[in-house]
Structures are given as C-alpha cells and as structure tokens.
Design a protein around this nucleic acid. Structure first.
Lengths: 359, 359
DNA sequence: TAGGTTAACGAAACCGATTTCGTAAAGCCG
DNA sequence: CGGCTTTACGAAATCGGTTTCGTTAACCTA
C-alpha cells in the first residue's frame, strides 16, 4: 500500500491553509457553483451577488488554483518560449529585456511564462511536443523568425496558438499569423538616406544570414534607400552572411580594399558594426570622418565605444510585452490574422556618421 | 447560463484526442486505480502487471497531465526563477547559457522552468507570492545572492524550497541552505599568485559591489593571494564598487596615477576589466607588457579583444544544470543543507598578463 | 387568476488524475 | 481443514475547481 518512490516530508511549522472556493462559498452562504459562476461573470448571477462575491473573495484573499481550473478548462494561463541555444548569436544582451517585457506584461494579466531550450530543430520539436502533451503551456512565442520557418507549420498542424517575433515570408507576410516586428526595412532605408544626405555616394551594406527574415528585409531597405536617394546599386557593395564582430571587421576590410571603396557602411546589426571600429584602429581611420557607420539594434556597448555608434535602436522589452499581449489576446479568442504590429526603430544618433572627407 | 467572457473557439480540424488514464485502463482490462498505482510503483501491484501496464502505456503514448496530478499531489513539477531587472549589470551574456542549463537539466527529469521578473524587491516578493499562491511552481532558483539576502528569509518563512546561485553570509555560508557556487575566492588567489610568479610586486584589485557575496569572497581571495605570494597588502591598491566598463576604466586611471602605481590589476569581472583596455589605448600602454590584467567570468568578448583577456571562466550552463538538479533533489525530499556544490573556475590564459617590464 | 417566462440560485456531474479503503482469492500454519 | 495473513486488485472518495441541469419564486401576459 505504501509508496516506494521518494518521500517529500515537509519538515515543520504551520504553513497557513489556503482558502478554497468552498471556504468562500460557506462564508457567503452560497454554493460553490454560484460562487464560481459569479467570479467568472456568468449572466445568471445577480449583479448584487456578483459584487458581494468579488468583495468577500478579495477580503479573504481567495485566488483559484490555475491547475485545478485547468483540469476542467484545459487552459493553464501559461505562455511558452523555446530558446534556441544553437542560434548564431545567442540572443546577445536583448534576452533580459525581452524576457522582462514578456513576464511583466503576462503578469499583469495573471499569466506566467514557461521556458524551455533546444540545441537543434529536432530537439525543439520534441520539447514543444512535450510541453503540449503535458499541457504546460497554452501557446508559444517564437523569436527569430526565418523566411520559411519550420516551427510555423509544425505548430499549425498541432493547432497550437502562437505569435512570431518578426514576420515570415519575406515580402508578403503569411496571412493568418500573429506577429510583432520592428521595421528594420524602414530603418535601413532611413540610414542610407541619412548618409546620402551627408553627401555619401558610395554606401555599402553588411547584412546577416539570409535565412532569417529580418536579414532580407533589412537588405531590401538598404536597396530602397539607395533608390530613394537616387544612388546606383552596386552588388560589390552589398555583403551578406555576416554574423559576429570579427566577420563584421572582415567585411569592412573587404569593402575598403575595393578599387572604389565605400565611404560609409550600413551594418545590419550593432554587434557586427563594432568590427568596423577594429579595422579603423588597424588602419588609422577615424570613424565618423574617414568612414561613416550606421547600424541597428541599440546594444549598450554601442554607446561605450568611441565615437558612439549611430544606430536604430530596438526596444526589446516593449517587444516582449507586446508579444505577450498579442498571444494572450489570441488565446482569448481574437482572430490570429488581425494581431499584427509593426513599430519603427528609434534613431539614436552617435558620432559614427557624418559628412565624408573630400578626396 | 451562457458565459459573458471571451470565447475560445478552436477553429477546425481533428486535433487528436489525447489518451487518458481511463483509456489505458480500459485497454488493459484494469481499473484506473490499479493503473495509477502501477505507474507510480506502488508495492501492492504484481511485477507482471506493473510491467504490462508500463509497456501498454508506452505503446499508447500515455502521459499523465501534470496539472491533473497536481490537483491531488499539490506538485506541478515546475521550477521558478525571478529575474531582477534592476540588477546593476543585467546578467550580461550569461543568461542564455544559464537558462539553457536549467531547462535542459529540468527537461531530463520532466520538469519545466517558469520565470518571472521584478523591478524592485517589493515587486519580487509580490511576484513570488503570486506564483506560490497560484501554485505555479514548486521551488525557486535564486541567482545573484547577496551577503544578507532578503529573499532567503522571505522564502524560508513561506516554507518554500529554494537553491542559491552563490553562497550567503560571506565567510560562513548559512547552514541548512542549498547552493551552488563557483570558487571566485580561489580564482582571485590563483590570479595574484600567477602574477606574482611573473615577477609582479604591486598588484591591484578592482572589485564589485560589496553587497554581493561574491564581491567579498573575491576580495578575500585577492588578499589571500597576496599573503600566499608573500606580498604586502596596500589598501590603496584595493578598489571596490566597480560595476561596468567605464568604472573599470576609471579604476585603472586612478590606480595608474598613484605615486607608486601597480604593474598588474586583478579585476573582479571581465566586463570591468575591459575598461583597462580603453585606458591603455588612451595612454599608449600595451596590455600584457606595460600593464598585466587578469579577471573573471569568461565572457565571449574577452576573447575578441587584443590581446585576449586572461580570465577565470565560469560555466554558466553547468551552473544552471546543477542548480536545477539540486532543487529537484530537494523537492524530492533530500535535506537542503546537504545540497551544496563548489566548483573551480577554469583559467583561460590570454595575452593580457605577463612579466612586468623592468623600470 | 391561470399559465408561461424569466431571474437567480442549488444540486450534482464532471475534469483526470491519486489515494484510501474494502475484498476476493491464494498462501500459510498448526 | 478451518482460521489467519498476504497478495493483488476493484470501488469509491478525493483534490479544487467548472459546467450542466434542475428548481423555486417572482414577474408577465392574456
């Protein structure tokens, strides 16, 4: 009769009894069912009773246990996030802000965030499957969307609600999906136009991995910016697949070694843009004068370097908060396709860009 | 009778019916109770039946719903982590590794990680209270322990299991607590001894905020190192309260401006040590020759600078994994006081330290 | 004023498990 | 072979809620 597995002796002490719905009902002189319906705003409860129940519930500090509710409702009020440990740049410094945004917003609505991690796509699918199987989450937030993101189809076939941080499908975002994104395209366009306004005529671009949707969009923005500024597009000035500081440095070297080198480089990310500073030091160039740099992200380190990096900053905390909000809305029944948000990146002028020196 | 609140129409499609314990029981020709006890290794189930139940359960893909179990058992198999958004250095780049470690290990045991965040101590207490009230987690992992950590007493009075990342109480860790820590004291001692071995005689220390336990321990290690190397302790060479790169730079300036400046500086963290590189550049000094630097943490950026930073690296992923393991063990009934682990930091030699130049 | 609604609540089933308790059959003992 | 344990399982209670289905009394309406 007794158990074999591990025992869990709580050592001692009172540990105050929590108040259940039956306690509340008894205190009110009502039944559990009435109290439950009153708390859940059913229409067959009189306003006075509803109000009285709410008041006494607050007085007694009653809060329903989510998992007890979940047995019946099937919803646990938890959002899921799977971190991809094998991502090229490991989320960098954004993660704290991002998680903070999600959890703060979720907390306001009484939801929590459950996170898992994976080292590969298969592991990601296994992890998601397990979380769903065990019903530990109601929906997912998917960061770092790819142009064709396997997670999307995977979750769709499983009929699980989700929101994307970033669009998919490059030009035409897939319809019917919920997403939040920052307008990297617009930022890159603005960067090019700004540089052209300073007088630059040869403006290069150092982009990221083309499998990520944001990378293509930012490249598009770069090209649009050239067009808007009336500058010709030169394929030699457009580099892609650059993912860290040293690759960013190498990109700068390659560009500067061209027969007709650029006087300005737009980087797709701050982390790679910092590589240009290394090259400038190598070659005795002054950033902001001999070579102008504008990038994107707004990492703290960009403000620590000399001169400070001119960048289009992303508010990761706000992104997390909005994503949480969108997912919760979807879980409450809002049609997924109508839950999309595109916000502008914020220009943070530093000293890394300026008029080119005349030859 | 109908509900007023949001509806949750699942739009379409099959969505395969999950297998419940009653389905399993029926397929086996047994009752729910027998199946449940068989799966939970009760002693009053015959070995053959137990084996047969396990086999059929696997075949049918049965997995119990944790929240349905929780209604009865009171345990949800979830670990909790509260991120402190107001911390001085915001966790830096460790967070991804740390979370990865926790979740990977937890996942192996069938547990998940629920995270929340707070902007202040009161908010932290409210958050913890809510998570407990709603019974969303079984125990907590507390990072960034302070010398006297208010969270410890708070959780103790609530009778909630927890593990600490880092000890408390400075010299004598509080008994009865579970913790995992990296031996920063030993690392700092080794750093000083290593520098002394190179021939340095004036070795300075740039430490962190004294409210954090690790800061005091590392300072102790510095002093111990001096003693072990037979060098005198000079209060002028010991700085504290340094928390970012610019403060690290200022510390370097202050130290180098002393009448009898140090030839080497041991930094408590990599992030602050990078400030020394900025000062070296300002003053035309060569790191590793004119000024030796050793620090602690092993952030990726330390390997990108020139010369690479000599540092004592911490394995955050391993830390997360071990903390998860310790907490799960405690939740399974292990006595908290016996769950402690101290591991050594790993020396990663770079080029930032070497013999001093003779005057 | 009889008959039909409607408003507001109670009683009981239910969700998917775990755990307590009861009990038939088998095994043991003298 | 009768009585007493075990062994191995079934029946039912339980956890803390939600939801369905009645039911009563007040309110309309004709």
């Amino acid at each position: 009769m007794e158990e074999i597995r591990d025992t869990n002796k709580k050592p001692s002490e009172p540990a105050p009894r929590r108040v259940r719905i039956s306690d509340l009902a008894q205190a009110l002189g009502l039944t559990k069912s009435t109290v439950s319906r009153a708390l859940n705003n059913y229409s067959d409860i009189s306003p006075e009773t509803r109000e009285r129940v709410a008041r006494v519930a607050a007085e007694m500090g009653y809060a329903p246990m989510p998992y007890a509710q979940a047995v019946r409702t099937g919803r646990v009020r938890a959002l899921g996030l799977v971190l991809e440990l094998d991502a090229p740049d490991r989320y960098g410094p954004f993660l704290t802000d991002f998680l903070g945004g999600i959890t703060q917003e979720a907390s306001l609505e009484g939801w929590t965030l459950t996170i898992a991690s994976s080292n590969s796509r298969e592991e990601m699918e296994d992890t998601v499957t397990r979380l769903l199987q065990e019903h530990k989450v109601d929906g997912f937030i998917l960061p770092r969307t790819q142009v064709v993101d396997p997670r999307v189809k995977f979750l769709q076939t499983k009929h699980v609600p989700f929101v994307l941080f970033g669009r998919t499908g490059h030009g035409q975002p897939d319809p019917g999906l919920s997403w939040y994104d920052v307008d990297g395209e617009g930022a890159m366009r603005a960067a090019v136009v700004r540089l052209a306004g300073f007088g630059h005529r040869r403006i290069a671009f150092a982009g990221s991995h083309a499998s990520y949707n944001f990378a293509l969009l930012r490249r598009d923005g770069y090209r649009d910016g050239l067009e808007e500024a009336g500058l010709p597009f030169d394929p030699a000035l457009e580099l892609m697949e650059i993912s860290d500081r040293s690759e960013g440095a190498q990109a700068a070297r390659d560009l500067l070694d061209l027969p007709d080198p650029p006087t300005a480089i737009v980087y797709s990310t701050d982390a790679t843009a910092l590589g240009a500073y290394d090259v400038a030091r190598e070659r005795g160039l002054t950033i902001g004068r001999d070579l102008s740099i504008i990038s994107y992200d707004g990492i703290p380190e960009g403000r620590m370097v000399d001169p400070p990096l001119t960048t289009f900053a992303v508010d990761s905390q706000h992104a997390g908060a909005r994503l949480a909000s969108l997912l919760i809305a979807q879980l409450r029944g809002a049609p997924p396709g109508e839950l999309t948000e595109l916000v502008a990146a914020q220009l943070e002028p530093g000293g890394s860009d300026g008029p080119p020196v005349d030859p």
